[in-house]
Lab assay of single mutants.
Amino acid sequence: MALNTPQITPTKKITVRAIGEELPRGDYQRCPQCDMLFSLPEINSHQSAYCPRCQAKIRDGRDWSLTRLAAMAFTMLLLMPFAWGEPLLHIWLLGIRIDANVMQGIWQMTKQGDAITGSMVFFCVIGAPLILVTSIAYLWFGNRLGMNLRPVLLMLERLKEWVMLDIYLVGIGVASIKVQDYAHIQAGVGLFSFVALVILTTVTLSHLNVEELWERFYPQRPATRRDEKLRVCLGCHFTGYPDQRGRCPRCHIPLRLRRRHSLQKCWAALLASIVLLLPANLLPISIIYLNGGRQEDTILSGIMSLASSNIAVAGIVFIASILVPFTKVIVMFTLLLSIHFKCQQGLRTRILLLRMVTWIGRWSMLDLFVISLTMSLINRDQILAFTMGPAAFYFGAAVILTILAVEWLDSRLLWDAHESGNARFDD
């Protein structure tokens, strides 16, 4: 018995066209964080690309023209004298008006014999932002004059995390709450300039795509075929072959399989920071003279006294001054041990922890910024005066060393310790 099946006739004509040209192939790229070699397709503007294995951002879609970056830099340069030299806060102490600005706080630190601690604050609040705007201006002028731009481009990517104007702005709020127990506070004209400078700096850093600047100024022929001998440069993120001198053909720094002496430098910085954190938390970090009496505060006791007036601000200072430094030390110690013992479990967790400490590390400088600003506000000789204690130097040095330890660690070593050939990683 035959089955009668109805015929289905399409209502619209289906047209099949042959592909007349070869589909576009992607360029081969190595991930600078996990060293995976993959094919990167062509990316349009405002599109980002991520590593298929570790999800690290390979290409950032946010990109401004150099002219727009230069305009932002010149605007920031105009704001800087007002943000640093004009009063941020006014207080009335014992019937006398006192003005506080950024430069005055750094000068008070240096004047009291601790120039190293003052230079830490100076670099993060004044030096690094000033280098940022002058570097962008150098790129703008240098591109037109045919100057060598490689050193500036190499420095810009590392400079971003040292620009800490946003953290200093939080420190202004913390210092205001600490001082309000002794005097009446009012915002100064410099505060508005400083807030504007923070906003412009944040926007500029978020749109400063150094890798795209490398592509514009020093374009290189990408690798179009897969080759395990391809290496990625950690300076400019170019994937290719080393030249005859073993250097990256684009930025001219040595092109090595792994960062040289990464573990040794990381261990040295980490152990030194552990040693410095002990006096930083045991010795007094601030000293207040009130009517001839002397009151010393460690980091913890200062947080407890701050909690009596504002528990939320005390929580912020606790996280930045105690929780973050010790968390960074514990995480980095764990990561280094996992590399030495070739741990194969929990790779995803370790990668996330490394990215976390990379982002939060700079916030530990908050305590030094609060001390710097408070020193310029309260300084009335023996009637009422505020000065920093010996722990300030140890704390600042420990924070900087932990930042350097994270920067010096080559994250690809975590993958080397893991089993080879993993296309995915999980716990």
Rank of each mutant, 00 (worst) to 15 (best):
Y138A: 04
L366E: 08
H237Y: 08
G235Y: 03
I106Q: 05
G118W: 01
A280Q: 02
P52K: 08
S273V: 07
M147N: 02
K57F: 05
F393R: 05
D227L: 15
A268I: 02
W64N: 07
I167T: 09
G396L: 01
R97E: 03
L263R: 05
Y394H: 09
A73W: 15
T134Y: 04
A187N: 08
S308P: 09
S65T: 06
P10R: 14
L290Q: 01
F122A: 05
D416V: 10
R256Y: 13
K328D: 00
C34G: 00
R150A: 03
L139A: 02
I316C: 13
L153I: 09
A18P: 11
D243E: 07
R62P: 02
P219T: 14
P32L: 14
L373V: 05
L40S: 12
R256I: 09
S364A: 00
T374C: 11
L353Q: 06
T204M: 10
I131P: 00
I185F: 07
I167M: 02
L3S: 13
M109F: 08
T239V: 05
L300H: 10
A100C: 10
L66N: 12
R25K: 09
D416Q: 07
I43P: 09
V170E: 03
G361W: 01
R225N: 09
M36S: 12
T327F: 13
I98N: 06
S338M: 14
I303F: 06
I43M: 12
L130V: 11
Q220I: 08
L93Q: 01
A83Y: 04
D99H: 11
E157P: 15
L93S: 02
K160A: 09
A2T: 13
A49K: 04
A73F: 15
F393T: 04
Y28E: 13
M147R: 03
T110C: 11
W214S: 15
H418K: 09
W140T: 15
E228T: 09
G61Y: 14
L191D: 03
A392F: 03
W267M: 09
T11F: 11
L149Y: 02
L404R: 03
I403H: 02
I299W: 15
L66R: 05
C248L: 00
R144N: 06
W92Y: 04
I339E: 10
N209S: 07
T15F: 09
K229S: 08
S286W: 00
V406H: 02
R412G: 01
I285N: 01
A73K: 08
R362Y: 02
L200D: 07
I319V: 09
V133W: 02
M103E: 06
L283Q: 11
S65K: 12
Y182K: 07
V163F: 11
L277T: 04
L37D: 10
P81W: 07
K160V: 09
V121T: 05
G85F: 07
I378M: 03
R158K: 11
R97K: 15
F425H: 14
I288G: 01
I58G: 03
L255F: 13
Y50H: 15
V170A: 15
L347P: 09
Y182I: 11
Y289T: 03
S308C: 05
T117I: 01
V195T: 10
L94W: 09
A391M: 01
A115H: 05
Y138C: 06
I172Q: 06
M1I: 02
R97V: 03
T387F: 07
A49D: 15
R260W: 08
C248N: 00
I106M: 06
I319Q: 08
P390M: 12
D114S: 09
H207F: 15
S308H: 09
D427H: 15
L94N: 01
K229I: 09
N148V: 02
L69F: 14
V133I: 14
I287F: 08
M332V: 12
A187S: 15
L130Y: 04
R362N: 03
M388D: 07
A223H: 09
L165H: 14
L352S: 12
